[in-house]
Design a protein around this nucleic acid. Structure first.
Lengths: 356, 356
DNA sequence: CCCCGTCATGTATGCGCTTACATGCCGTCT
DNA sequence: AGACGGCATGTAAGCGCATACATGACGGGG
């Protein structure tokens, strides 16, 4: 398809032969009649090269299709221009949005982002960080501060600046860019308490090794304890964050013995929507006899029946702020500790006064 | 927090002094009483090293916290173990799922994945690929085959194996792993035609530089043409893939002059759900007086009111297959051209016979 | 008119690792 | 017994680039 254009690139035609290799700086230098030092300067410190020479070098480089070999550059300059981000999975809007923003911001500064997915496994997380460090990342953003000690040891040992993204507990030993999960769920629960609710159910994600989920549960319990209340074990449901698990949990919950909850707090919007779906299927009036809350404010939350009361966090802003923090760290400037982001309560139609 | 453990790592305490640097292979070699060649072999070809020597080296390496410097390794071995993937944005379930699967699969083979986001901009796409090539990627997956010629020239010139992901038009000049967008929408439209629909509206994503969207429109037109039908300009809506655009497009459409469409084909589920929301708001009976279709089969599609008729593509399978293809290419094995994936029609409640 | 500073460029070293080749040891076959 | 082959390891040469330092040209001031 583009065969005709290959001819423009001298060494292209040879790409089938084993001798073919990408051009090097020395090839560009030879073709431009300068030394490799000047080629290097033309790209890395253009002001140090005479404009005419520089243009000649650029022209030759373009003609040869030369791209500076990053491995060579990294070795010689001791700079990789690489940063890493460790997340549980890309397959989740929240993390994808954060990574997207982080990458966009770092990329604008010429930094390439390596993405490591732990799949919610601490050992895999540690391994991913090991690989990233071997690749020479100069900064690292980590989702969640619950990690193996070795992970923090490795990055501290190498003096790599890092930041914990998404979480931001009040007394973290780590630099954080995020919000306080516990405070957010405290606020949410307080809101429901103020509506008169006294019996609660909770449907949440797997809490193993997950400080965000644990903090959320703590926030709920803290608010309840303030009123002398507690969660009944039969009202707590832990499982995968799917519509299905939200549905079956609500079903089980309402079929159970003892006092029926008047409010269901869900670990995220997906679970809440599942609960909403089941409530509709069972003919339960939401919010008349049951209030339901979510977390994340997915775009769909506004359009469920009834619209979902939830909490919103600006994930793109978190990603951008994390990038900004790392960037100032890389410049060896003072690390300005960010105040936590605020999770915003979005009251919609899925919550109401108890017994309304 | 982990200060007590730092003491276990000899050079940690010095990380504040400017002289501190990560250990090198030669440090490990010295501490283990061998040469750097043996250290290298212990990690890259363990069977060539006596078990006792190997264990000693591993122990010393762990103690020193040594990680092989990837830049040095890449330079010497001419292997970077890097692959790239070019996508429009991570902020979209479909691409995130594909990348997640691709990365999981390649990572299992020791390959690190570089992710480049084009933000639907051809120049940015080209630039991202340029950066990836400079970093030494040995393989590349690209979403969408509509790219600047320079992009394909660059990768061909370097002999980097690549694969187009997601799309799979019948006569592509590129190796593809994906499905035939045109055929999928042909099938979908055919289904609606068989239900008796004759007047159609289309609400779709921006088509500029987007071969997937263009192919989908072509599929619709092809099916209609088979019945001597065509789309009226006032029934075509192009805009961002949001609920909001789906809503306002349906509203505008139904308020417009001329014959009212009995079926609305949406470019994806988000637009379709927007249309569904608007239809409910307007009190329009779906599917009684209006059929609505989506594409992607988002998890929520099953639970809309009415449940959404849509098409499903296994994005994780595409990512995995793309990784598999690149892996065999890297082994210089025969490239087995994959047959296209099939987009599966999922008939639910949002479509029905015309005028039912 | 000479000296020295400035600027543009060249020279040459080494970043940390892999690997072809060299070395030396030991066991085995003739 | 001698030769030879195989094996474990060492030696040393780069991989492609950036950069400290050297060089040389040029110009201005004393």
């Amino acid at each position: 398809m583009y065969a005709h254009t290959y001819a423009l690139i001298p060494w292209c035609g040879m790409r089938d032969s084993q001798t073919s290799r990408p051009p090097r700086a020395i090839d560009v230098a030879a073709a431009a009649g300068v030394s490799t030092a000047t080629v290097s300067r033309a790209f890395n410190a253009p002001e140090k090269v005479l404009p005419e020479v520089r243009d000649k070098i650029f022209a030759v480089a373009a003609e040869l299709g030369w791209l500076p070999n990053a491995a060579g550059a990294a070795l010689a300059s001791r700079r990789t221009w690489l940063a890493g981000v460790l997340i549980p999975t890309l397959d989740h809007d929240v993390f994808a949005a954060q990574v997207n923003a982080l990458q966009a911001h770092l990329s604008a500064s010429g930094i390439t982002v390596l993405i490591g997915c732990s799949n919610y496994d601490l050992d895999e997380a540690t391994e991913q960080v090991r690989v990233m460090l071997a690749r020479g990342i100069e900064a690292l953003a980590i989702v969640g501060e619950q990690q193996r000690p070795e992970l923090f040891e490795m990055i501290s040992a190498r003096g790599v600046p890092y930041v914990v993204m998404y979480s931001h507990p009040p007394k973290s030993v780590h630099p954080c860019v995020g919000f306080d999960n516990q405070a957010a769920f405290f606020k949410l629960t307080r809101y429901l308490l103020d509506l008169g609710h006294r019996t609660f159910a909770v449907i949440h994600q797997p809490s193993l090794d997950n400080d965000r989920v644990l903090a959320r549960l703590a926030g709920i319990r803290e608010a309840l304890a303030g009123e002398g209340l507690a969660l009944r074990p039969q009202h707590i449901f832990e499982g995968q964050a799917t519509f299905e698990f939200g549905r079956e949990s609500l079903k089980t919950c309402l079929a159970g013995p003892g006092p029926r909850p008047t409010a269901v707090i869900c670990g995220n919007d997906t679970l809440a929507i599942g609960a909403l779906i089941e409530a509709r299927a069972m003919g339960i009036d939401v919010p008349g006899t049951l209030s339901v809350t979510g977390f994340d404010d997915l775009p769909i939350a506004e359009f469920t029946a009834p619209p979902l009361t939830t909490m919103r966090v600006d994930n793109a802003a978190i990603g951008k702020a994390a990038a900004g923090y790392l960037l100032t760290q890389l410049k060896r400037q003072a690390a300005t500790p960010q105040p936590p982001f605020e999770a915003q309560l979005i009251v919609r139609g899925s919550t109401g006064p108890v017994g309304a």
